[in-house]
Design a binder for these strands. Sequence first.
DNA 1: ACGCAAGCGAGACTGAGTATCGTCTCAGTG
DNA 2: CACTGAGACGATACTCAGTCTCGCTTGCGT
Lengths: 244, 244
Amino acid sequence: MDKPGTRDNGHMATPSISHRLAEAAVALFDENGYDETTVDDIAARAGVSRSTFFRYYRSKEDAIFPDHDTLLAQVDARLRASTADTAIVAVSDAVRIVLAHYVADAEVSLRRYRLVGRVPALRDRENASVARYQRLFREFIGKWLAGTPDADLRAELMAASVVAAHNQVLRGWLRAGGTYDPSGPLDQALGYVIATFRHLERPQDGRDDVVVATFSRSASPLAVMEAIQGHLRPRPTGETGEKP
Amino acid sequence: MDKPGTRDNGHMATPSISHRLAEAAVALFDENGYDETTVDDIAARAGVSRSTFFRYYRSKEDAIFPDHDTLLAQVDARLRASTADTAIVAVSDAVRIVLAHYVADAEVSLRRYRLVGRVPALRDRENASVARYQRLFREFIGKWLAGTPDADLRAELMAASVVAAHNQVLRGWLRAGGTYDPSGPLDQALGYVIATFRHLERPQDGRDDVVVATFSRSASPLAVMEAIQGHLRPRPTGETGEKP
DNA sequence: ACGCAAGCGAGACTGAGTATCGTCTCAGTG
DNA sequence: CACTGAGACGATACTCAGTCTCGCTTGCGT
């Protein structure tokens, strides 16, 4: 079931075959273009046979989107490992997992980004992946909201928004060449999404306000808490109007 | 540039070749499955040669998603034919155009829905189409919001939400066997979306302020959530109720 | 030393998609 | 009527992705 190359021995002196194949694929795609590169070419440059290529990757496109199933499984696991109380946290964490994965391999992510931008077939492939993530989120949120009014519609909207927020942050980061840490913007974007839907949750409650918080990673927890408390109105009378 | 079969002579006594091909394709897909049906089979049943099939459809999948480019062009046209004042109307109209197109051909839509549900390759294809619609909406909304704060992020979120709303309504209608008029539910769903984002449009006019904060990853999610919940409504009745 | 299983190469095969060429039909023209 | 040129179709060959089978080697345990 599991392809042998899925597990990577990145520390070996002799790079693993899957590594060599991926390297060869990306290099050839860069040099000659995607359509112009055949699987034979990739295998030849990696020094293996065509058969071996298909032992490690299900398809030619798979050579560019390896660890995708792994990532999807991680997201799924993170979502499952949560109760109703922590649903929002689970979703946020899951999204962070995905973004962190891109950031961890900025080099590869950037090359892939440029490549995907030029090849429609790969764009479609990526969209298909995004849809799978969205489906995961939709099902999770759907279960979470089960029983509430408009559960299906809201689950769909929230899932789409969460994924869209991630994509927006990711694209921005990629366009900038992966030169900064996108976790701040991601938290901000997720806060935006959460705030958006929280307005719908209790639209009539009136004056009870909502605090959605996002912190920079460098901030110490204590400073964070102080900041929050500073922005909260200790007296309902006082209009502190924050708007960070 | 334009494939001959794109324009349909649906009124002819002898059905057009593109019609015969599409009929043959769907019939064979239903009978023998998608992967098991070759283009030769389709062409043979339609009484034409394999060459002719590819003259009318770019690929095997195209035989199931014909008028897709047309629909995309209609959406694009509707969006372009609008000023900033009527942006919301334009978006709503564009979505309605898409849904109406499915409803107009309920028979075909239902068969395709069942087929797509069983064939992953077709699902991916459909997701790719959805992404193209979403891109259209995103670009339109992006221009519309240009200059406002967080324009890109909001455009992305709105586009995703609009498309998600459409898909949710469409899927519900398809699952029900296309037995009712979905324009009501669609309007409702779109209203939901519009209401959602309207809350964000003017965050400052109401006195209910929003504070966005970010958390360090090192902080345990549970602790963070508890902290936030502890800081929320220090005054009111108690009522911690999550689970909206 | 003897299996024995896993990893790999070789090669055949199916089928999608492309390109080229030949044929036929039909419209317009003299 | 004969000629001509364009468009639609069929036939064929070709490339390449993806699948499958078989046979070889290597290494590991007994």
